[in-house]
Simulated scan of single mutants.
Amino acid sequence: MTTESHPGGRRPIDRVLADGFADDLQGLPFEDLRERRHLAEQEEVDLSFARRLLQGRLDLLRAEQQQRELPQDGPVEGERTDAELARDLSQALADAPRADHGLGRHLTTDPSRVGEHRRAAEQAVADVQASDPSALTDEAIVRAIEHLVELEQAVSDTRHQVQAVMDLMSTEVARRYREGEARVEDVLTAE
């Protein structure tokens, strides 16, 4: 999963994190500022989505790991019934409070590259067969979790960089409204 930016690249992440993208914001025409902020916001949403996909895979692997650590009461050692699998899957994917939560920003945009990020997350875990964690050895689960934790951290780090760019732009937009350089009416008539 490549979420880091590449200087001179053409992807949105490359543009948002490029040197100069957030420079001289006071001299930027308001419409250009709004477009850049929107691009950064979209990239933050897409990165959040990718991060959540990775976290879902981690949840499944950790649930399998935890299940293996529990004493087995079933008829065949290590095998679970379909009902137990469904229960475990629903628990693993439940929206319980997370220890690895983000900044809790209110996002007004939907992910734009859902398919791209889903494919990237699936490719990132394809080598660890995360769609069937029960087929993995204990050691393979540990390695898969370590691998996904590293990927999730890389996505998270990039997301924080994008959020810093968004914060700069939002601060400039707010300054312009506060000082009367921009008016809500201008934005409404421009859309």
Rank of each mutant, 00 (worst) to 15 (best):
M1D: 03
T2G: 05
T3R: 05
H6I: 14
P7H: 13
G9A: 08
R11W: 06
D14Q: 07
L17G: 05
F21R: 03
D24V: 01
D24I: 02
Q26W: 04
Q26N: 04
L28K: 11
E31D: 15
D32S: 15
L33Y: 07
E35K: 05
R37C: 01
L39Q: 12
E41G: 09
Q42K: 12
E43C: 14
E44I: 02
E44F: 07
D46E: 10
D46T: 03
L47Q: 14
F49R: 05
A50L: 13
R52G: 10
Q55T: 13
R57W: 11
L61A: 12
Q66S: 14
Q66T: 12
Q67V: 07
R68V: 05
E69A: 12
E69K: 11
P71L: 11
Q72M: 03
D73Q: 08
G74M: 04
E77N: 07
G78P: 06
R80G: 03
R87W: 09
D88Y: 01
L89N: 05
S90G: 00
Q91S: 11
L93E: 04
L93N: 02
L93W: 09
D95C: 00
A99L: 07
H101Y: 02
H101E: 08
L103E: 13
L103I: 01
G104Y: 05
L107Q: 11
T109K: 06
T109R: 13
P111D: 05
S112D: 04
R113Q: 10
R113N: 08
G115C: 01
G115H: 06
R119G: 02
A121G: 09
E122I: 06
Q123V: 09
A124N: 12
V125A: 15
V125Y: 06
V128H: 15
Q129K: 14
Q129R: 15
S131V: 13
D132P: 00
S134C: 09
A135T: 15
L136E: 07
T137E: 08
D138Y: 01
E139R: 09
E139A: 11
A140V: 00
I141H: 02
V142W: 07
R143D: 09
A144I: 08
E146P: 00
E146F: 01
L148W: 00
Q153Y: 02
D157H: 04
D157V: 05
T158P: 04
T158K: 02
Q161V: 01
Q163C: 01
M166A: 06
M166T: 09
L168H: 10
M169N: 03
S170R: 10
R175T: 14
R176T: 10
R176P: 10
Y177F: 15
E179W: 13
G180V: 12
E181Q: 11
V184T: 12
D186M: 11
D186E: 14
L188D: 15
E191W: 14
E191V: 15
